[in-house]
Computed example of a mutant assay.
Amino acid sequence: MSRKTIILPLRAVQGVFSLLVLALSAYVAHWYNTTTVISSPSEINFLFFVSLWSLLSILSLELLIPRFVAPMTAASNYIALGVELSNVVFWFAGFVALAVFLSRLLFCRGSVCQSAQADVAFAAVGWLLWTATGVLMVKEVVRKGGLMKTPSWGRSTKAAGLAPVEVPATKEQV
Results as ranks from 00 to 15, higher is better:
45 N>R: 08
124 A>F: 12
104 R>A: 12
144 K>L: 04
96 V>I: 15
135 V>M: 11
131 T>K: 04
141 V>K: 10
149 K>G: 12
38 I>P: 00
155 R>T: 06
167 V>M: 12
160 A>I: 07
52 L>K: 03
88 V>H: 14
100 V>Q: 13
104 R>F: 12
18 S>M: 04
140 E>S: 07
52 L>A: 06
73 T>N: 10
28 V>L: 10
22 L>V: 06
22 L>E: 13
163 A>L: 15
19 L>E: 08
88 V>N: 15
160 A>M: 15
31 W>Y: 15
117 Q>D: 10
168 P>K: 10
104 R>I: 03
101 F>R: 08
58 I>C: 04
147 L>E: 11
131 T>L: 15
150 T>G: 08
28 V>P: 05
79 I>Q: 03
116 A>K: 03
119 D>P: 00
130 W>V: 07
153 W>F: 13
86 S>V: 07
152 S>T: 02
40 S>E: 14
80 A>C: 01
71 P>Q: 14
8 L>G: 04
26 A>G: 02
87 N>V: 03
82 G>K: 09
34 T>P: 00
86 S>A: 14
33 N>A: 11
50 V>C: 01
58 I>H: 05
125 V>N: 06
145 G>P: 01
91 W>L: 09
14 Q>G: 13
84 E>L: 08
60 S>K: 07
2 S>H: 09
55 L>E: 08
161 G>V: 07
138 V>D: 05
109 R>I: 05
166 E>V: 11
103 S>D: 14
35 T>V: 13
92 F>D: 00
55 L>D: 08
57 S>Y: 06
8 L>Q: 11
99 A>C: 01
1 M>Q: 02
173 Q>H: 07
98 L>V: 04
107 F>E: 06
3 R>H: 13
1 M>A: 04
159 A>P: 00
141 V>L: 15
21 V>W: 02
18 S>R: 05
24 L>T: 01
72 M>C: 03
25 S>Y: 09
91 W>S: 09
51 S>C: 03
147 L>Q: 12
15 G>V: 08
17 F>G: 13
116 A>R: 02
167 V>R: 12
26 A>K: 00
101 F>P: 03
13 V>D: 05
94 G>C: 13
90 F>A: 15
134 G>W: 11
71 P>S: 13
58 I>Y: 05
137 M>V: 05
164 P>K: 15
54 S>D: 10
30 H>G: 06
31 W>A: 13
54 S>W: 01
13 V>G: 02
105 L>F: 12
103 S>G: 13
167 V>G: 01
1 M>G: 02
156 S>R: 04
87 N>C: 15
48 F>Q: 13
13 V>R: 07
65 I>N: 01
170 T>K: 03
140 E>T: 11
66 P>G: 10
28 V>M: 07
118 A>F: 02
166 E>L: 08
167 V>A: 05
141 V>R: 11
64 L>S: 08
171 K>L: 03
102 L>F: 10
52 L>Y: 05
62 E>Y: 11
136 L>P: 08
115 S>N: 03
15 G>N: 14
170 T>E: 07
40 S>H: 07
139 K>V: 12
81 L>R: 00
126 G>W: 05
146 G>E: 00
69 V>E: 02
159 A>H: 04
155 R>P: 03
119 D>M: 12
138 V>F: 10
131 T>F: 14
148 M>H: 03
149 K>E: 09
117 Q>T: 05
114 Q>P: 00
135 V>P: 02
170 T>S: 14
165 V>C: 08
142 V>Q: 11
103 S>Q: 11
166 E>F: 06
172 E>C: 00
